[in-house]
Design a protein around this nucleic acid. Structure first.
Lengths: 307, 307
DNA sequence: AACCAATATGAATTAAATTCAAATCTATCA
DNA sequence: TGATAGATTTGAATTTAATTCATATTGGTT
């Protein structure tokens, strides 16, 4: 009666707190999840969740099953990796380049998990900043880029393959006493003649500029800082505005150090992929890297949506 | 893709060595199992069994999945047993007896709140008057007494357990024009040769008599009435005195219908407990009943002290 | 080569899960 | 107190997946 699929659903519900969001995560409808959990509740004749208009909260019984999921699913994944190893040797190397600065936040736990899962694979982070990280793959200097899809390069390149990871929202960051503090969302004009504080990367690599400000011909000043906390300090002290992933600024917002607002009418969302040569991305351990990223981030990063 | 059901099938195959026999064990046909294992083999693209006319033998990959089954299934069963235990913790019945008449005032909101919190517990009030309510627990006719601790009964009883609720003050009630209206507090002698109006219960169940009047050998007349309002009317019309919980007479005092005075130098306080068998009082819903009583009464009854 | 005792296969059937569309619930706000 | 927004629930229709049935095939043994 209880099946692995139900455990996956429980985990997603725990991560998102809402049936609708959990449903996206497991690629089902919200209704399907509702039917699933009701079937389990009826089967065991016990309620697993307290329902409210804020979503679901686990009852002790629900927590017990969640705990089961948290124990069983990793064991299942381990067995599946073992099966792959039995098919063929899986040693190799995996040199990762990050397109975006903020991804460092979660890469460490990902690499830890990966090393535990694939001890025979040498995983490394390619250090330094690279203006065209995708090119490093063709040059043979990296194996996987974690970032957005490359823009259409005019040069001929070895065709790349990609695995979707997740998308996240880029939020506008304001000082708490900013004039726009009561406005629900930010628009392109709101950045006009303002200072925009960013990581030190080219303009075309900053989504806000490329997708919003440039098309609207907004004029602004740029100022850069290396670290997220430095950007936060500059914003808090009213030296300018910033645009950062929702997960990276969550704790600053919670402590009311700065304000965060969605940008544009639908919000500014950025998509992340694991990108590599076709050869590389068909390797089981490269696919598993993507799975681990999705897993770790689904767990650690609030507000992301799995692709 | 791989589901619990497949693990059960693998286990049955290991136990019987033959698809046909294994199929009986999991209440499926041989064909169904054949389809199942073929689906798994195709999914992981690996052979799980060597087939012969003696039955099936596990390959290393098959053994790996069997090992997974042997690890996962017991964990699942343990979780299921835990759920059953949790269910028994949240459903049952709770037959309440009140030792004191006045407690009816607040029991209704308590029962309403309880029913909302524990829909699977049948809560009921044991009707009628009982001279020894605690004994009803040993007789299996009630689950919880709300009242004072039982006096040391000489008979052997199943040991009872209790949870403290609150204490409240029993006030002497006088007509507004009584001779003692200017006296701050009443003493035992003040009841001498007077009529005491009480609920119709035995003397030893009336705290004023048991704790104050009897020890001081005061002589008095008793008269009984069923309802609090009837007692108030009798007192107001100078037919006698009464002694009632401060909360029960509050509104009469506020409307200057009667006077209330503390009794004795420290006041006469009575303590209330939820009392039941040890088994009963360890159940989560019994503990929660006590919590709800304390909560509701702390809110509704002025002048009580939580124990 | 024939036979036995298994498993495999494919189409039909049955059962289960999922979706769709609408209803319902429940805090919160005016 | 009623309206509303944001969630879940519900039941019927649909789709998908699992199972059965009937039969074929396989591998080992004589």
């Amino acid at each position: 009666m209880l099946e692995i699929r139900h455990l996956r659903s429980l985990k997603a519900i725990a991560e998102t707190g809402k049936l609708g969001l959990a449903a996206e995560r497991v690629f089902l409808t919200q209704s399907a999840l509702s039917h699933q959990i009701r079937a389990i509740e009826q089967h065991y004749d016990i309620t697993l969740f307290k329902r409210g208009n804020q979503g679901l909260r686990f009852t002790p019984a629900g927590q017990r099953l969640l705990e089961l999921a948290n124990v069983l699913l990793p064991q299942l994944e381990k067995a599946e990796r073992d099966l792959i190893r039995m098919k063929s040797d899986q040693s190799g190397e995996l040199r990762i380049v990050l397109e975006c600065h903020t991804c460092f936040d979660w890469l460490t736990p990902v690499m830890d998990a990966f090393r535990r899962a694939w001890p025979e694979v040498e995983i490394d982070l390619v250090a330094g900043f690279h203006s065209d990280p995708w090119h490093l793959i063709n040059e043979g200097k990296a194996d996987v880029v974690i970032g957005g899809l490359p823009g259409d390069g005019f040069e001929k390149r070895e065709p790349l393959s990609h695995i979707p990871l997740f998308k996240f929202e880029i939020m506008g960051v304001l000082p708490v006493d900013h004039a726009l503090k009561n406005q629900a969302r930010l628009n392109a004009e709101d950045f006009s003649q303002k200072t925009l504080i960013t990581y030190p990367v080219p303009e075309e690599r900053i989504d806000l500029i490329r997708q919003i400000l440039k098309p609207a011909h907004i004029e602004f000043t740029r100022r850069t800082a290396e670290l997220t906390i430095a950007i936060m300090q500059l914003v808090a002290s009213r030296r300018g505005l910033a645009a950062l992933p929702s997960w990276g600024i969550q704790s600053y917002v919670e402590h009311n150090y700065v304000l965060a607002k969605p940008i544009g009418s639908k919000g500014l969302w950025s998509k992340l992929y694991a990108i590599g040569s076709e050869d590389m991305m068909t390797k089981p351990y490269a696919k598993d890297l993507a799975r681990i990223v999705r897993d770790v981030c689904a767990d650690k990063l609030k507000g992301i949506k799995l692709l």
